[in-house]
Nucleic acid binder design. Structure first.
Lengths: 226, 226
DNA sequence: TGAATAGTTCAGTCTGTATTTAACTATGAA
DNA sequence: TTCATAGTTAAATACAGACTGAACTATTCA
């Protein structure tokens, strides 16, 4: 058991592979070349590293034509990466100004395709408090009032319900240790906010940037102070 | 943020340091020398690695005379180690025989000075089931019948109560995720079993070996199958 | 006191493994 | 077809960082 743990630890604990995992953290799939660029290494090298991660079943691959898309094998991998990210030493004295206390990524990032982090949790809290969604034995449900709210907000619930994916489900955020909103509703909320230019995906698209407009609207609609 | 993650990952992902973390996983504190033995490396080397783990605040240290006791800094470290252990590839076909699945240290080890691991948990379960101890809002108490039992078993409760240390307290076991019995009672139980030659401390005193006599007595007294 | 044990520091060595160079296959587009 | 792009494999190289040896301080014990 110890040997196996050491193997896993040394597998993750290489700079290039750690960077790969970090880039895969938002749940999307990337091609080998994309990862090579993101990680800043050669194609041959990324190929070798992806091979090792594949062999240990930390990632899986899907072939599409001449492309190969790599993603996490299962959510446990994401948990482990996030749990490790939790160990990053906190800055002792908050020298920085208020909003800059942490880089945006800490406050606002995507988990697969919905909002996670502090922002995702705050959003879930607000929707719960406004009784737009309600908690029912561990699951989230949309209230009667909530249905109207979503329609006003410009989200078509019937459309969402048609999708295969789970409609509304809580997702435990490791950095906050709190539930936020996953499922298609989570994805739709994120999409909507991006379309309304409240939020913008950044270049590497893991972090989410909040626009000036978004700052005002988030405060107005959800009482979220950015 | 990514850089910091890579730093943390490479910190954990060295074979020697991973082994240190693995050994600290049960929550106990170890001296540098004990760790060097457990990890099978030199004193100088362990010192260097402990220094790095200390600097990153993954572990902390308490000085006691000429000894230095190292332990996890916080529960997040244990979470991360466990989350990583979760990624160990599952054996597809369980080829192994029953009792040899894990080395003895996994089943029977001390946590500070009381029994932890599977053995400690099984012992706590048995005492609870026999109503020798009872759980009362998260704490353990000795029942009326229990007082007689302890006296029959050769443990003087009044003596134990005089000691400063907490008399009877649950202690969460990381590998089992279950409470076992700490406090002076836990220590006395361990002492007693060692005196009766049910158990023997091994050389490095982390692991506990069960004697033939112990095997019989544990089954008889606590229905624990070793 | 001195002897033994616990732990650290530092310079030098060594080695595992990541990376590079180079030659390859497979798919898609012109 | 031929060219360009995506990705792999294999051997040669390079290097970060672990480990060793030797010399040190601090504490306990006899």
């Amino acid at each position: 058991m110890e040997d196996q743990f050491i193997k896993t630890a040394t597998l993750i604990g290489d700079a290039t592979r750690a960077s790969i995992l970090w880039n895969l953290l938002d749940g999307r799939a990337f091609t080998a070349t994309e990862l090579a660029i993101a990680v800043e290494t050669s194609a041959q090298n990324i190929s070798m590293h992806l091979g090792k991660l594949l062999e240990a079943d930390l990632i899986c691959v899907e072939k599409q034509g001449r492309h190969k898309y790599y993603r996490f094998s299962n959510k446990e991998v994401a948990y482990a990466v996030e749990a490790m990210a939790n160990l990053i030493p906190k800055p002792k004295d908050p020298v920085k100004k208020k909003s800059e206390e942490y880089p945006p990524i800490k406050y606002c990032r995507t988990c697969y395709d919905h909002l996670a982090g502090k922002m995702g949790v705050a959003l879930a809290d607000s929707l719960l408090e406004q009784k737009i969604i309600i908690e029912k034995n561990g699951a989230f449900e949309i209230s009667i009032d909530g249905e109207k709210w979503f329609s006003d907000f410009g989200i078509n619930l019937e459309e969402a319900q048609k999708q295969k994916r789970i409609f509304l489900k809580p997702c435990l955020d490791w950095s906050e240790r709190r539930n936020h909103i996953a499922g298609s509703i989570g994805a739709l909320l994120l999409d909507k906010m991006i379309n309304e230019d409240w939020l913008r995906r950044t270049k590497d698209s893991r972090a989410i940037a909040i626009t000036g407009k978004g700052e005002k609207e988030l405060l107005k609609n959800f009482k979220i102070v950015v």
